[in-house]
Design a protein around this nucleic acid. Structure first.
Length: 466
RNA sequence: GGCGCCGUAGCCAAGCGGUAAGGCAGAGGUCUGCAAAACCUUUAUUCGGCGGUUCGAUUCCGCCCGGCGCCUCCA
């Protein structure tokens, strides 16, 4: 049936393919780098990663751009409070963000672009909008006049006809002609960072950077634009207004929005103290893969209720898959090929792929894998799973992990190397044979303390790192 | 007030017209020198409540109850 994705623009699941050739041109709203990313942010970026990986799995090439917002009100305020140059401040958090992405095994977009390095493109775009009559100036700042863009609201499906033109929003420091209008260029204020422009020194509004950078690198019409649900309005709506007014062409064909993550049924907030960062969770002893698994196990359009229990559960789930892989690799199997098991393998892969094709239904894809694992574990117990079926089972795991990327453990330093472990295991086996059980148990405990778990199986001793 | 989402076992959660996936936890079992680990089995006559449509509804429609999001910065 092919890949289908839910499009916020149409509120429907639609068949997806790129507009031109085999390359998907995709833009994702990235982080504002003023703080550590929290797990809610990471959910959205993990969603981007899932989408990327699945598109590549399906044979598409990617031209994916993600922005770094490194000039913005909060950034300016905080860096000024600290008396640190804005760039120094943002680079630090940008670096933390990139590290977190790597820890979470998130593929890097083909381009990661900074807002501050594209001021000229933004100025040009604003000039184009000005030429076409979509802007006005007020108190030295430049605004977008939404009344000139009749389809405003088509993405978030809001009806703005009730909002009166001419209304003044008094809690805004700038004067606007219409409550919906938004700022394209903010006039310079005090010591804030600013850039020269034909319409006066100042800095860009938040929305313009995405339009300018997306179109610079990906052309007038993108295949996919992604972001968190909260960005649909007004940010993405404003991107559409800016871009389409300038080019007269549709800005993005597919808009994908990732739902929010809640913690213990509540929105994350400082006052509730329930904001988690990746680093905190790692300090608490959880693995990045476990967080990745939690974030991926709930389909991206559903709210995800995060709990520490779910993280523990995810760790167990991953262990189960790793154990299965270890069993496949180390087990002694009889020769031959069991055709009915091959059939089972093909069926499982088909279910996995069909689930992912269905708007990235990761929950169902996961179920297909676990079901296969359970069935083939039984067949392994019965001895009917034979050597010829090993490759297909490992391939299913490999394909699964191409997208989920949780099977490889994150290495912790300072542990025994493989050969010393093997030596101790051999010593323990010898002790057991000689009925020196206390010696054998000592070695077992010694290894356990070093984070090595032994498994006595029919085929001998198998070990793994905890 | 406007627009939209959700309510499925102890917990997370799929399914969305044909009679309830999967994971975690719990309980049993297999294996074992004892253990651990691992694996297997098992856990919802029922899908928030009440009506309606239908041969048939968790799935569609209406109402009600409960939770949430957006409409202002926010992943």
């Amino acid at each position: 049936m092919g890949l289908r994705l839910y499009n916020t623009l149409t509120l429907k699941v639609e068949p997806f393919s790129p507009a031109n050739g085999n390359t998907v041109r995709m833009y994702s709203c990235g982080p504002t780098v003023y703080n550590y990313a929290h797990i809610g942010n990471l959910r959205t970026f993990t969603f981007n990663d899932t989408l990327r990986r699945w598109l590549r799995y399906r044979g598409f090439l990617l031209e994916h751009v993600m922005n770094i917002t490194d000039v913005e009100d909060k950034i300016i305020r905080k860096s000024m409070e600290l008396g640190v140059p804005m760039e120094q401040y943002t680079r630090k958090y940008e670096q933390f963000f990139l590290e977190d992405m790597a820890t979470m095994r998130l593929e890097k977009p083909e381009r990661i672009v900074r807002a501050t390095e594209h001021i000229q493109e933004m100025v040009d775009l604003i000039s184009t909008l000005a030429q076409k009559g979509f802007t006005y100036e007020s108190d030295g700042s430049v605004y977008y006049r939404i009344s000139k863009f009749p389809s405003y609201g088509k993405l978030s499906h809001h009806d703005f006809s009730g909002i009166q033109a001419g209304a003044r929003v008094d809690n805004d420091e700038y004067d606007k002609d219409d409550a919906r209008d938004f700022v394209l260029w903010k006039q310079r204020k005090g010591a804030e960072p600013c850039w020269d422009a034909p319409f006066g020194a100042g800095r860009p509004g938040w929305h313009i950077e995405c339009s300018a950078m997306a179109m610079k690198y990906l052309g007038d019409t993108l295949d996919i634009h992604t972001g968190g649900v909260d960005l649909a309005f007004p940010h993405h709506e404003n991107e559409i207004a800016q871009s389409e007014a300038a080019t007269g062409k549709p800005f993005a064909r597919f808009w994908l929005h990732c739902e929010h993550l809640h913690v213990d049924m509540q929105k994350m907030s400082k006052s509730l103290g329930n904001i988690y960062t990746l680093r905190e969770l790692i300090d608490m002893g959880y693995s990045p893969e476990a967080l990745r698994f939690v974030l991926m196990s709930v389909p991206y359009r559903k709210k995800l209720n995060f709990t520490l229990d779910s993280l523990k559960g995810a760790q167990s789930s991953i262990e189960r898959l790793r154990n299965y892989k270890l069993r496949l690799q180390s087990g002694r199997l009889s020769d031959g090929l069991n055709e009915s098991i091959s059939e089972l393998s093909r069926f499982a892969l088909h279910k996995f792929e069909a689930a992912m094709d269905d708007d990235l239904n990761t929950a169902e894809a996961l179920a297909a894998v676990f079901e296969y694992v359970r069935e083939t574990n039984t067949l392994l117990d019965q001895g009917v799973f034979v050597a010829g079926n090993r490759a297909e089972a490992l391939q299913l795991l490999a394909r699964f992990d191409q997208v989920f990327a949780v099977l490889e453990p994150t290495m912790t330093a300072g542990l025994l190397d493989d050969s010393s472990i093997e030596a101790l295991i051999a010593e323990r086996t010898a002790a057991k044979k000689a009925k020196q059980f206390s010696r054998a148990d000592d070695i077992r405990n010694q290894l356990l303390e070093a984070g090595i778990i032994l498994e006595d199986t029919k085929d001998g001793v198998r070990w793994k790192r905890k």
